[in-house]
Structure formats: C-alpha cells, structure tokens
Design a protein around this nucleic acid. Structure first.
Lengths: 105, 105
DNA sequence: CATATATTTGACAAACAGTGTCAAGTCAAA
DNA sequence: TTTGACTTGACACTGTTTGTCAAATATATG
C-alpha cells in the first residue's frame, strides 16, 4: 500500500533526484525518506509540507493524501476499519454542525 | 461531540449506576470514566471491551463506535478531515484487494 | 568478478504523546 | 451548609513514534 509514498517517489524520480538529494533538500535522513516512500513510516505534517513546497504541488490535496494515509496506516490491522470510518465521518459531520450553531449564538 | 461517551452514559444511567460504580466494575478511576463519557479522553480498546462485556451489548458494533470516535477525535482540528477520510477509505480498500491477491498466490 | 553507488533494513536513544491517579473544584439536592 | 455525585487540572509513569547510524542488500559499471 502507501499511495502517498508512491506519489513522493514518483515526484522524486520525475525530477531525477536521488533519495539522498531529496532527503537533504528537506533536511531529513535518507533512511527515513526511504521508509516514508515505502510506507514503513508516516511522514510528519511538517515533512509533508516541506515536500509539497519543494515540488510545488497543490498543498491541500497533498495534505489530504498525507492525512488519509496516516489514518489508513493506523487502521491497517483493524477488522472494523471501514465501519469505523463511517462512524468517524458521521461524528465529524455532527460536530461541524453543533460547532457552527455554537458560534452563531 | 462524542457519541461514544454519550452511549456509555446512557447505558450507565439506564442501569441506574453511578460513575463510581461502573468505574469500579471495569476497574478504572472514576475521573477517567467521567472524561471518557464526556469525550475528553478516548477509552483504550481494552476498556471499550470491558464496557461492552459488562453491559452485554453487541461487541462489533460497540467497537466500531469506539474506533470511529477515536479517529474523529484525532481529526477534530483538521480542516481536511473529510477529504482525508475518503483517501483513507480508498487506500484501505486498495490494500484489502492486493492482500487478497497476495494470499491467493 | 570487483568496485562503486543507491537504497533498504534493524536497532536504539531521545523526544513526544497518551494514560492513570490524586486532590481540589463545581454543582445540585436535601 | 452539608452531603454526595461528578468534573477538572496537574503530574508522574508508560508506551509509542521519531530520527539516526551502521550494516545489509541491491543495482550498475569498468
């Protein structure tokens, strides 16, 4: 898995960069970048932002993919993952509404 | 928010139990249970199972709600939460498939 | 094949986030 | 104003995540 890691690798290779080169650009260890590309580690938000910035890609889209990956990674061994995602969606929806109401008072 | 916490409180009150009583049944501090019911803390999986067991409710459903709440809690301050959930869903779906293929080889 | 270059992996200390606990706080009913 | 139920904040403890290094593996090149 790890669409996010694949995406980084793709960006990196299309720009003819070595792991070491991209790693040094964004100031992380190349071993860590390797793990991120392969989906063995999840990037921090900061790192995701640095990468998006460096390649100049759409920031929101990239961050959504990063965050989505992070959640998927967390759920990868859970049998009830997809049910849980539905619950989470509802709950966030519900929360958004009540928050809006609260703000308007 | 916290549908999960509300659910526990509902179960507890319908069974005429005080916080302190339920807390002692499942062997946690009542302060902690209070926080869980109010959505200020996320129960551990173990605690969720103990509660489900104690009230004898559907285990899978209850765990899904627990896990969903956990994710929602994690995403509560993220602007891109709902996009991320979609990404996560896709990714898990994709992962499930490739895993299945792999197992069949 | 031998060497050089690129990437991957495992292990570990350091940093960080989550958990349980206690004592003090609020609130409502009597 | 006392009592009982619940809530909150602070803190030490625990466990997880993160970054880093060295060694291992793969890939390419003379």
């Amino acid at each position: 898995m790890s669409k996010f890691g694949e995406k980084i690798r793709e960006l990196r290779e299309c720009n003819n960069l070595l792991l070491r080169e991209l790693a040094s650009e964004i100031k992380i260890d190349q071993a860590l970048l390797s793990k991120i590309e392969r989906g063995n580690r999840i990037a921090t938000k900061k790192q995701a932002l640095l990468i998006a910035g460096f390649f100049n890609v759409n920031r929101e889209e990239f961050l959504s993919q990063w965050l989505g990956e992070k959640i998927a990674y967390e759920l990868k061994d859970e049998e009830l993952a997809s049910e849980a995602l539905k619950v989470a969606e509802e709950e966030l929806e519900y929360y958004k509404k009540t928050k809006k109401e609260t703000n308007h008072v």
